[in-house]
């Protein structure tokens, strides 16, 4: 299990680094899709099977298709893409990121999170299968669930409204 964790962790970080440095939008989107697949694998390792399936379906499926659709719809030419490239990673940004990460590792160590193995609750924690997640979702979190459906409806209407060509 630990070997798989490291495999998918290294793969995710490498793919993320490649994604934010690509000039080509399509290449960046595909690398991000690989990151999503790696995160889905991490969910499986944490026994969150439902989330792993949703991650692949919604993120690597729907959201990435939407992204690729828009990138190809906009059809940026080579010149524009080259102009947008600009400075890739500023030294200041890298230093800031290193500081942030160091602080995070320090905090996590102070909080003693490195001593808590995944699955420490044993059989206390039910496996994240669809049935178990659905039971909690519809019994305890029904109101947030309904609000989420309204949010999605608002997003659909808003997206159509924003992109609609005005007939003048």
């Amino acid at each position: 299990m630990t070997a798989f964790f490291w495999l998918f962790a290294v793969l995710a970080v490498a793919a993320a680094m490649l994604a934010i440095t690509r000039r080509n939008g399509v290449a960046a989107a595909l690398w991000v899709a690989l990151v999503f697949v790696c995160i889905a694998a991490q969910f499986v390792l944490m026994r969150a099977y439902f989330l792993a399936a949703v991650e692949v379906l919604v993120y690597a499926g729907a959201i990435m298709v939407l992204f690729l659709f828009v990138i190809m719809l906009l059809n940026l030419d080579e010149k524009e893409a080259a102009r947008l490239e600009g400075p890739r990673l500023h030294a200041a940004g890298v230093v800031l990121a290193a500081l942030f990460l160091t602080g995070l590792v320090f905090t996590v160590r102070e909080a003693g999170l490195f001593e808590v193995p995944i699955g420490s609750q044993g059989s206390m924690l039910p496996a994240g299968e669809t049935g178990n997640v659905a039971r909690d979702l519809f019994l305890e979190f029904l109101l947030p669930f309904e609000i989420a459906s309204f949010l999605l409806l608002a997003a659909i209407v808003g997206a159509v409204l924003i992109t609609k060509r005005r007939l003048t």
Binding site: V13, A16, L101, L113, S120
Partner: peptide
């Protein structure tokens, strides 16, 4: 594989983002 490992991985991805 501990909770700390996963949180640090999440933090690394967050930093890259």
């Amino acid at each position: 594989m501990t909770v700390g490992h996963v949180v640090v991985l999440a933090g690394t991805l967050f930093t890259i983002g």
